[in-house]
Design a protein around this nucleic acid. Structure first.
Length: 563
DNA sequence: AGTTTCGGCGCC
DNA sequence: AAAGGGCGCCGAAACT
């Protein structure tokens, strides 16, 4: 029988805990134990722990080797519930929730802890404000009722459970770290950038390229200063409005080639160079801090280390332990498949019901076999393309897949009009600041920046202050990107359960891609587990659907060999 | 001098 | 060819 217990850490390293009934109410006396980890370790029959904050509790458990099967993160659920209720931005702490429940003054959320290089999750610095166990349970019980009032209660329950599972995965990945060879990394850096000079200046290759750029302009130009580059082009009789690559790469000038090369290598140097290695890699592991549900769409973010932006060339440094392998798995055309599942467009569901290249199938149906056009059209529909060939392509797409396009069009309209937009499971897009704002924009009155969420959770950048058109694009993308994030949470949860019985460890997750580090002999099992987890996740998330979610998997010793 | 914003680019 | 979604990170520039 699945048991559910509530848990609240105490100041002295101990904990309060108590069993919960099916209704979420206390089902027994509150117990007091001297050691948090022992209290959990001693109760293997508990299948779900209800606690205030996974970030507060779980790293401490993991530090003593204790894993849990499931949890329910009250403060994360509060954020999701508040969003669903159209109260985005209200304080999400358990203390605030309790205050709202009892009608007292609502405390603002405490500020977020800044990221520190190489830092583990804070073991001894509790984040946020603790509550006595009985208060926590009171909040939890009320949250259960709030799930019942959601548009789709069962989906909302799945969402909060799934994101709590995601937080367990994130905490475990933070602890394990991504296998990283500092030696290979240094070789790659040396090969790309050349020797480092004393004093921390540019490495040899960058200095050479900067000289080439200067030579081409006939004067000293610093390629890392956009203003300098714009001026230099102007003096050469070429007007540019920025130094973005797409704007300068078509220019016919001898400085362009070394300039682009410089930008590429400069990026590697500053973002993933020697100092990055120093800061973020220790004992053969890169330890970023993954944060499940860190964005409004539900995508994860990382704190520090740029773990979700590792350049392809640097992936050479991700190397499995001896005798181990990396199973690198990439969901094929995830977003259009998600669009098929949520829109239930018959044509798109049929296309997405096959495991073959979806863009090719779409192009066969609507674009005379031109795969690139089909891909552009699909991505344009999802991203809110508004001009160019995209519009023509969108029209072709609309003829063949009317319900799919209508689905994102409806979301865009809702966003423009300031109505709530939700993912399939019920994660809710932050609404516009107010209906008056559009009118103000219409009248040409600049609209001020909206107040940021007091809880430190991210708003869409400038979301509330952007044009209604931009909000439409955001909402259009939100329903697809966010529903995809819903599905990946269930995928991770399922995969985590399989890995729990093996030596295999989840070490990396990036939107539609997952890496499992495992002994060589487990690799085939892991590959199969990913396929099964994808199917289970699809069934749980979207219900009965013909849509398939195939993965491209590679069993490699080095991440760079996966593609 | 310290903090915030900007420009550019990495990933999906 | 180029415009559209989500992020984080860095140094420089712009601010206080």
């Amino acid at each position: 029988m699945a048991e559910r217990w509530a848990l609240a850490p105490a100041e002295d390293g101990g904990a309060e805990l108590a069993p919960l009934g099916p209704d979420g109410l206390l089902a027994g006396p509150v117990l007091r134990e001297a050691d948090l980890a022992s209290a959990v370790r001693g109760r293997p029959e508990v299948s779900r722990w209800v606690w205030r904050s996974t970030a507060e509790v779980y790293p401490r458990l993991l530090a003593t080797g204790v894993r849990v099967e499931r949890c329910y993160d009250v403060e994360d659920a509060e954020t999701l519930l508040l969003g669903h209720e159209g109260r985005y931005g209200e304080p999400h702490s358990a203390a605030a929730s309790l205050a709202r429940l009892r009608g007292g003054p609502v405390p603002p959320d405490p500020p977020q802890r800044p990221a520190a290089p190489g830092a583990q999750s804070p073991l001894f610095e509790p984040e946020g404000v603790r509550l006595p166990l009985t208060d926590l349970v009171e909040v939890y019980t009320e949250q259960q009722r709030r799930h019942d009032r959601a548009g789709h209660p069962e989906r909302m329950r799945l969402l909060t459970a799934a994101e709590s599972a995601g937080m367990l995965v994130a905490a475990e990945m933070n602890r394990v770290g991504l296998p990283w060879s500092a030696e290979v990394h240094r070789e790659v850096l040396h090969g790309l950038l050349g020797e480092r000079y004393a004093g921390g200046g540019e490495p040899r290759r960058l200095a050479e390229l900067a000289d080439e750029v200067s030579a081409a302009f006939g004067r000293r130009v610093r390629p890392d200063l956009p203003a300098d580059v714009v001026k230099a082009f102007a003096q050469a009789g070429i007007r540019i409005t920025s130094t973005r690559r797409w704007e300068i790469e078509s220019i016919d000038h001898p400085a362009v080639k070394p300039l682009i090369e410089y930008k590429k290598l400069y990026r590697v140097w500053v973002a993933h160079g020697w100092s990055w290695l120093q800061d973020w890699v220790r004992d053969g592991r890169f330890r970023p801090e993954f944060l499940a549900g860190g964005t409004v769409t539900g995508r994860w973010v990382t704190n520090g280390g740029g773990a979700l932006q590792i350049p392809k060339v640097i992936r050479r440094a991700v190397v499995a332990d001896p005798g181990w392998r990396l199973v690198v798995a990439d969901a094929d055309q995830m977003e259009p498949r998600v669009l098929a599942a949520i829109s239930r467009d018959p044509g798109l569901m049929e296309v997405a019901g096959r495991e073959t290249d979806l863009y090719q199938s779409v192009s066969d149906r609507a674009f005379s076999g031109d795969r690139d056009q089909a891909k552009l059209a699909v991505l344009g529909a999802v991203y809110g393309q508004t001009s160019g060939d995209g519009l023509k392509n969108l029209a072709a797409l609309r003829r063949r897949f009317p319900r799919a396009v209508a689905y994102v069009d409806d979301a865009a309209r809702a966003g423009e009009e300031g109505r709530l937009v939700r993912t399939w499971l019920g994660r809710t897009c932050p609404p516009a600041a107010g209906a008056t704002q559009d009118a103000a924009e219409e009248a040409g009155i600049p609209v001020g920046e909206d107040e940021a969420g007091t809880d430190g959770r991210p708003w869409a950048p400038g979301y509330a202050s952007t044009s209604s058109r931009a909000r439409g694009r955001f909402a259009r993308n939100f329903v697809v990107q966010g529903s995809a994030a819903d599905w990946t949470l269930l995928l991770l949860a399922a995969l985590r359960r399989t890995c729990a019985d093996m030596a295999a460890e989840l070490v990396f997750f990036q939107h539609d891609e997952v890496i499992v580090h495992c002994p060589e002999e487990e690799a085939d099992t892991v590959v199969a587990a990913i396929r099964e987890a994808a199917e289970l996740a699809a069934r749980l998330t979207f219900g009965e659907t013909p849509v398939r979610f195939p993965f491209t998997t590679a069993v490699v010793e080095c991440y760079a060999d996966a593609k």
